[in-house]
Simulated assay, not measured.
Amino acid sequence: MSQSAHSTQSPTSFEELVAEAEAAPTEGWDFSWFEGRATEARPSWGYARAMGERLAKAEAALDIQTGGGEVLNSADRLPPLTVATEGWPPNVAKATALLRPRGAVVVASPEDAPLPFADGTFDLVTSRHPVGPQWAEIARVLRPGGTYFAQHVGPRSAYEVVEYFLGPQPEGQSADRHPDRERAGAEAAGLEIVDLRAERLRMEFYDIGAVVHFLRKVVWMVPGFTVDQYRDRLRTLHERIEAEGPFVAHSARQLIEARKP
């Protein structure tokens, strides 16, 4: 999401803002549409830069749930063997167009399916915001001495948005994303934790269009979200933003680096 300050946009009415957000494409992990409409603080560790440094030294790398391939493509150098998986067909097409010219192969693979690779294929596995890490599969495809380096979404991320639309959520709803649970999952698969850090980061939505686009793009936040279903809640939130300023939420991010002995 954009880190810029709010700038004046042309659409201003509730209906205009919502219509514009509904028309915007949602494939890939390009968040430039939010420029001037929403901001999210960045984690201190700089995932893309750190990922790029590791890719530059790797021989064979796998990027899991690559989205539209934008994060992987940000690396200056890709290893001789670079493969990415992605499950959503529009993203598979987008990632292929972006990464094929760089010699990377994109494999269509559902996020919950076993990884379609032989044991010990990769010395580096990366992922930015996977739906859920398949620790046993990650460990299986890593070579001995290989590394899993990723940024995960932490527990109760952007729950101010979720709970505005769905009401209070059970405390254990996203407990499997807790750092302690992630550590346990990695270690159970035989990986050693090298680094594990967590941060909560401020998000601001400056207009209702940004909220609509966010919920259309990050579909697991409010499952089955449609404007028609939540029109009344959206209109109330629009009026609140107009009167009080940005709608504030907090994302949760975790950096995890694990090594296969």
Rank of each mutant, 00 (worst) to 15 (best):
S4M: 10
H6N: 08
Q9S: 13
T12Y: 06
V18Q: 00
A21L: 07
A23V: 06
D30I: 00
G36W: 00
G36D: 01
R37H: 03
R37W: 01
E40C: 13
R42W: 11
S44Y: 09
S44I: 06
S44V: 11
A48D: 06
M51T: 02
M51V: 04
L55Q: 01
L55Y: 01
K57F: 00
E59M: 10
A60Y: 02
D63N: 06
Q65H: 09
Q65D: 11
T66C: 13
T66R: 00
T66L: 02
E70M: 07
L72S: 02
N73V: 04
L81C: 12
E86L: 05
G87C: 05
W88P: 05
N91S: 11
L99G: 09
L99D: 07
R102K: 15
A104Y: 03
A104D: 03
F117P: 04
D123A: 06
V125G: 05
H129N: 09
P130F: 08
W135A: 11
E137M: 09
E137K: 14
I138N: 11
A139S: 14
R140N: 10
R140W: 08
R140A: 07
L142H: 04
G145W: 12
Y148Q: 03
A150T: 07
V153N: 05
G154Y: 02
Y159W: 15
E163Q: 15
P168F: 13
E171W: 08
A175F: 12
D176C: 08
R177L: 15
P179K: 14
A184Q: 13
E187L: 06
D195V: 07
R197W: 10
A198W: 06
R202M: 09
M203K: 08
Y206I: 03
D207S: 08
D207M: 06
A210H: 02
A210M: 02
H213D: 07
R216W: 09
R216P: 06
K217F: 09
K217W: 08
V218S: 11
V218W: 13
T226F: 12
Y230V: 04
R233W: 03
R233P: 01
L234V: 00
R235Y: 08
E239G: 06
R240P: 03
R240L: 11
R240A: 14
E242C: 07
A243L: 10
A249I: 07
R253H: 13
K260V: 10
